[in-house]
Amino acid sequence: MGRGAAPAVDLDAYFRRIGYDGPREPTLDTLRAVAFRHPDAIPFENLDVLLGRGISIVPGDVDAKLIGAGRGGYCYEQNGLLKRVLQALGFQVEGLMARVLWMAPEGAPPRPRSHQVLGIVIDGETWLADAGFGGCVLTTPLRLFSDEVQDSPHGKFRIVDTQTNGVAERQVQADLSGRWAPLYQVSQGAWAEVDYEQANFYTYTHPSSHFTWSMTVGRTTPTARYALKNNRFTHRDVTGAVVEQRDLSVDELEATLREVIGLPVEADWRPVLEKVVAWGTPA
């Protein structure tokens, strides 16, 4: 993995945003601290897609939205920002790509690679970091090439060998109440920043992308995971057990986005939230 030049990011502003005031050396402890705080402070959300605004992954636009405006975003925004932060700290980091398996029916055909994740090399070992996977986001880096069960502040994970059409991949799985649920399969080989442009455009425009016809929101705090799929609200504890799950009215959805997720809800979101409630929870 190469370091490569990265567009400047205001580290002071980013660290204020995630509430971090610790060391800035490129160590595993620093990586763990940032990975823990990022998904608490910067939620996963696709509101701009539903608002018809499109998603820019130009660094300045991402920083203005996720840092300056107090908004969240999806994987290309979240992990694009995290990558530049880690590079600015001196980490050896590259962008990777994964095919999502989360909630896919058993036996379903392979999905295209559509999810950006990060690989960080520390003392010769590659760690997987991911700040952009909704309600099951990682809150600690994982050893990408270890088959052992790995603990995190929000449950256990493991990464195992698998193949898609004869191509080796690493499958990330989460322990959901004793059942290993696949999240995604990570492909080897770095992606250049320009490679993500086409995938991002597909994600926010193509009718087969669920981000164009459903709302997905997530936030992970030190004591909980919160997720919204349209108007279905799910609150899990750190073990993954469901604490609460219910469908929200428009007023409740707006309040939850503001008070639980921590988003600066805007007046022009209301028609979209009404549409989301009318859609109901996808099967």
Results as ranks from 00 to 15, higher is better:
residue 45 E to R: 03
residue 238 V to R: 08
residue 202 Y to M: 15
residue 107 G to E: 06
residue 27 T to E: 14
residue 12 D to I: 13
residue 248 L to Q: 04
residue 275 K to Q: 12
residue 130 D to N: 00
residue 16 R to A: 06
residue 137 V to F: 00
residue 60 G to M: 04
residue 185 Q to M: 08
residue 61 D to E: 13
residue 181 A to C: 03
residue 46 N to C: 08
residue 93 V to N: 05
residue 112 P to W: 08
residue 26 P to Y: 04
residue 72 G to T: 14
residue 73 G to A: 08
residue 176 L to Q: 10
residue 268 D to A: 15
residue 189 G to N: 04
residue 210 H to C: 05
residue 242 V to M: 09
residue 50 L to N: 15
residue 230 N to D: 04
residue 117 V to I: 10
residue 97 M to S: 13
residue 260 V to R: 14
residue 205 T to E: 04
residue 183 L to Y: 12
residue 57 I to Q: 09
residue 139 T to A: 01
residue 193 E to H: 13
residue 43 P to L: 00
residue 223 T to S: 05
residue 253 L to N: 03
residue 63 D to H: 15
residue 9 V to T: 08
residue 127 W to N: 07
residue 117 V to Q: 04
residue 61 D to M: 08
residue 97 M to I: 12
residue 95 G to T: 11
residue 145 F to D: 15
residue 20 Y to C: 10
residue 257 L to W: 10
residue 185 Q to A: 14
residue 142 L to N: 11
residue 27 T to G: 00
residue 7 P to D: 14
residue 20 Y to R: 11
residue 31 L to I: 09
residue 82 L to M: 07
residue 134 G to H: 15
residue 120 I to L: 11
residue 243 V to F: 11
residue 276 V to M: 07
residue 151 D to F: 00
residue 244 E to M: 05
residue 274 E to S: 01
residue 116 Q to H: 02
residue 58 V to E: 12
residue 28 L to H: 10
residue 231 N to G: 09
residue 18 I to V: 15
residue 162 T to P: 00
residue 257 L to M: 12
residue 174 A to P: 01
residue 205 T to P: 02
residue 251 D to Y: 10
residue 274 E to P: 02
residue 19 G to R: 00
residue 179 R to K: 14
residue 173 Q to V: 13
residue 94 E to R: 03
residue 8 A to Y: 05
residue 24 R to M: 04
residue 268 D to T: 05
residue 263 L to E: 12
residue 152 S to A: 01
residue 181 A to M: 06
residue 283 A to E: 13
residue 173 Q to N: 12
residue 34 V to T: 13
residue 273 L to A: 11
residue 223 T to W: 00
residue 81 L to M: 07
residue 62 V to L: 09
residue 118 L to I: 06
residue 184 Y to K: 12
residue 200 N to L: 08
residue 263 L to V: 01
residue 107 G to H: 10
residue 164 T to H: 08
residue 7 P to I: 01
residue 227 A to K: 13
residue 38 H to E: 05
residue 148 E to K: 01
residue 220 T to N: 13
residue 129 A to K: 00
residue 40 D to R: 01
residue 61 D to T: 09
residue 84 R to S: 03
residue 130 D to A: 04
residue 168 A to S: 15
residue 94 E to T: 09
residue 40 D to K: 00
residue 196 Y to M: 15
residue 198 Q to N: 15
residue 282 P to C: 11
residue 115 H to C: 01
residue 144 L to K: 12
residue 137 V to Y: 03
residue 29 D to M: 02
residue 65 K to C: 06
residue 218 G to E: 14
residue 233 F to T: 02
residue 252 E to V: 03
residue 61 D to H: 14
residue 248 L to F: 02
residue 254 E to F: 08
residue 83 K to P: 05
residue 255 A to H: 10
residue 236 R to M: 06
